[in-house]
Amino acid sequence: MSLEALLTILGMAAVTYGIRAAGMLLADRLPTQGFVASWMKHVPGAVLAALVAPAVLAVAPGRSLAEAFLPAETVAAVAVTLIYVGTRNLFAAMAGGVLVVFAMRMWLGA
């Protein structure tokens, strides 16, 4: 294993455990309402939305919006949304999305 991989994994482990322990230690001092509490509450959703958007529209420096449009990924994203809303099953949604991308790449070369 490379040093960079070891350092990355140990760094991830340290910050994650640190957050878990800090929550317990700071329980009495963490704000339960107001700006900071509201900000922390919105972090996970905003991070996931930020992750998803550029994967569905493949933007990159120097690429036009027309070039960024990915038909397979965009259609699959809609499929994932419908399956998840219908079933509330993470695995079914993921498998459905992968199948749509697979089918579109195979038959349409999308």
Binding site: G45, A49, L51, V52, E73, V80, T81, M94, G97, V98
Partner: peptide, 14 residues
């Protein structure tokens, strides 16, 4: 695409 699909489902669950 499994990444993106997982993130979309996790996001919708929130």
């Amino acid at each position: 695409f499994a990444f993106t699909a997982t993130f979309i489902a996790l996001l919708l669950g929130m």
